[in-house]
């Protein structure tokens, strides 16, 4: 039961992220939605590698051989860094958009049709 808890959290995070991106019109909230979506995927990755009772996957002085998987942790670390870059770029774009138009509403757009 406790093992399934992270996956439930993943579903909640993904749903929250999609809700924010689709239904919120504030640009900053859209970025927050993207980041929550990213966190959900990261949590999914990291909980895939969890083994009950496992220790950190470092072979030197390991007390026992039951270890959590190291690869998902490496993947998650990479993806966290990438998410950081993406969110930073999006926020800087929002900053420039706000300077230009003094508005953060996504419905206040110029490109359509």
């Amino acid at each position: 039961m406790l093992i399934d808890l992270p996956f439930l959290a993943v579903v909640v995070l993904l749903a929250l992220g999609v809700y924010a991106v689709v239904f919120r019109h504030n640009l900053i909230k859209i970025v927050m939605g993207v980041h929550i979506l990213g966190s959900g995927v990261n949590l999914f990755l990291i909980s895939l590698g969890y083994r009950e009772g496992g220790v950190a996957p470092i072979f030197t002085h390991a007390p026992k051989l039951e270890m959590v998987l190291p690869t998902p942790q490496a993947l998650t670390l990479t993806s966290i860094v990438i998410n950081l870059a993406v969110v930073a770029l999006m926020l800087s774009l929002i900053m420039l958009i706000y300077k230009r138009y003094k508005s953060l509403d996504s419905r206040d757009r110029r490109l359509m049709g």
Partner: peptide, 16 residues
């Protein structure tokens, strides 16, 4: 401003 808007839209969609 239009370029910024296009870049923002592209970025949101492609990161999702």
């Amino acid at each position: 401003g239009e370029s910024l808007e296009a870049a923002f839209k592209y970025m949101v969609l492609s990161s999702i």
